[in-house]
Computed example of a mutant assay.
Amino acid sequence: MKKTLTTALLGTTLLAGTAGADEVIFAHGENPGNPRYVAAEKWAELFTACTGGESTVNVAPSATMGDDVEMLTSATAGVIQVTANSQGSMAQIVPEIDLLGLPFLFRDLPTAWAVLDGEVGDMLDERAQNAGLKILGFWDNGIRNVTHLSKHVPTPADLAGMKIRASGRMTVDIFEALGAAPAPLAWSEVPTALQSGVFDGQENPLVNIYTAKIHEITPYITMTGHKYETTPIVAGLVWWSGLDEATQACALEATAEAGKVQRQTVFDSDADLRPKMEADGAIFAEADRDAYRAASQPVYAKYAAQFPDLVAALRQAAGQE
Rank of each mutant, 00 (worst) to 15 (best):
F47E: 05
E176C: 01
A19F: 06
N58G: 00
D122H: 13
T231S: 01
Q87H: 15
A212T: 03
S196K: 12
A251E: 10
G17Q: 09
D309T: 09
D140A: 13
Q81T: 14
V261G: 10
G236F: 09
A235H: 11
D268M: 07
K260D: 06
A313E: 11
G78V: 10
Q297M: 13
L243V: 11
G161D: 13
E119S: 13
R144C: 09
V94A: 07
A39P: 12
Q316R: 11
E257K: 14
L14F: 02
D67K: 00
A193T: 04
D22P: 06
P35G: 12
A114P: 00
M1R: 14
T6L: 09
V57P: 06
P95Y: 01
G78W: 10
P154H: 09
N204L: 15
G281V: 07
D268I: 08
S74E: 10
A114I: 03
M170R: 10
T83K: 08
K42W: 01
E96N: 02
S269P: 08
Y220P: 05
S241M: 09
A246E: 15
E203H: 13
I164Y: 08
A287T: 10
D122R: 15
N204Y: 15
I25Q: 04
R36Y: 04
D108H: 02
G118E: 08
A183G: 03
V94H: 07
E253Y: 00
L105F: 03
A287I: 08
L273H: 06
E216W: 00
G132C: 11
A91V: 06
T230G: 07
D68L: 02
N204A: 15
M65C: 11
A91M: 08
A186E: 08
F138M: 05
E23C: 11
G168M: 07
D272C: 01
H215Y: 05
M123G: 14
A318Q: 12
A77S: 11
A91F: 00
A186V: 07
A60Y: 06
T12A: 10
V311K: 05
K3L: 14
A91E: 12
A193N: 04
T111P: 02
P35S: 10
Q264P: 09
K260H: 03
P154W: 11
T222V: 03
Q306F: 01
V94Y: 07
D140G: 05
A256D: 11
D272L: 11
L159K: 00
A49K: 15
Q297D: 09
H148Q: 14
R169L: 12
M162E: 08
T64G: 00
M71W: 00
D173K: 08
A183Q: 14
K2N: 10
P95F: 04
T222W: 04
I221T: 06
L116R: 07
